[in-house]
Design a binder for these strands. Sequence first.
DNA 1: TCTTAAATGATAGTATTACTATTATATTTA
DNA 2: TAAATATAATAGTAATACTATCATTTAAGA
Lengths: 222, 222
Amino acid sequence: MKSPKVHIDVSKELFLRNPDSSELGKRIITGSIDLINELGFELFTFKKLGERIGSPESSIYRYFENKNGLLIYLVAWYWSWVDYKLAFAITNITAPKEKLKRAIDVLVQPVLVDYSILHVNETMLSEIIIKESVKAYHTKEVDDQNKKGCFSQYKYVVKRVSDIILEVNPTFEYPHMLVSTIIEGAHQQRYFADHLPALTNVKQNHDAIGDFYTEMIFKVLA
Amino acid sequence: MKSPKVHIDVSKELFLRNPDSSELGKRIITGSIDLINELGFELFTFKKLGERIGSPESSIYRYFENKNGLLIYLVAWYWSWVDYKLAFAITNITAPKEKLKRAIDVLVQPVLVDYSILHVNETMLSEIIIKESVKAYHTKEVDDQNKKGCFSQYKYVVKRVSDIILEVNPTFEYPHMLVSTIIEGAHQQRYFADHLPALTNVKQNHDAIGDFYTEMIFKVLA
DNA sequence: TCTTAAATGATAGTATTACTATTATATTTA
DNA sequence: TAAATATAATAGTAATACTATCATTTAAGA
């Protein structure tokens, strides 16, 4: 449902009750983005979220099984939104290399503008993705959740960009690997730049991370 | 202290009491590697570890502040061990490209042989690193722990390989970024191959991950 | 508009987790 | 042999991660 009034849909395995369908649901999403950002995912609890939004935690449990389920929802929402941005960024572009360049930009550039679609602060959400998204799938339940389709939004983004890569170089053997390396790498390097700078190379007044990965992808495909 | 009887040292910010200095300490390490592998880090607790090794949890708390501290110790031990393997792999090699090739191999090839230095099952530990190590530094305490030097073993490995990169190409601007991208990328792709194969490209009877990253690094440096 | 169903709020309760504290008993060291 | 140190055994606490119940509000259908 991508209409001018942008609405991001995620599949129904991702929640018990659709948070998009009620006021409380929307407060849960808005509030959780705020609170995870403030406390970090480990210290974030449904109890605290309930206090923040003025509702009992038992009500939040009607929307999500647990806090990991909520994180998976946020991650899926994010990738669904990125997919929308991707589609928009490459519409009417026919030259494969230019298409790829624009796609990479969407993936590796930081989200600075707050698009504020509905009740979601995308800038803040993208920071959560950088800091916490690995925790969404590094769990014991990953295989079950994958079977249910919890990660299909992310997979779809990877597939979409992989297809562009194959337009640029149809014989390249590792398109998915290259795309997921770049996506995860860019997130990780932004995290390192903030917390473990010895693991990266940050330059003043210049987006080293974006440059590095853009350069890398074209060299690998050459 | 790298002698023929290999002994891996980690700095003393990483524990309350050195687990290497007592029988109980060694059982804590051996047992935790077993149990984290079995349960995953989330379900792993000091209580369960105590039951496994036949000691009360309060005794384990004398060695480590909490389970995150223990994970940081295991990760640091691992990188200290990798650094030893690296030093060994490149001794007496003078050609920079050959040196780099050997270093990359140490970083991206899976740990299949159980070297069984002391009480540590390195193969199992390397699986923990792949699945759980991101949780060691994706926390609210990362900056404090970094200041204390908890991650210096990892940083040292990155620096060592970065220096080889600069031997191959002295003008390359992002050596640390390239090394950490490859290390984290290789781990992540092994995880994806097992749990989210749509995000990677696995080939039968052929180490795609090793090939991909080796090829990548030389193309980027060319 | 009245009736019923559905969602929410208020409250309570449980098992587990993540610790801290205390004391007795081994074990090591001086 | 005494003194210091480490471990075991046990208990206890606050917080977490839920589940359950029931009254009340809100929304939807006839």
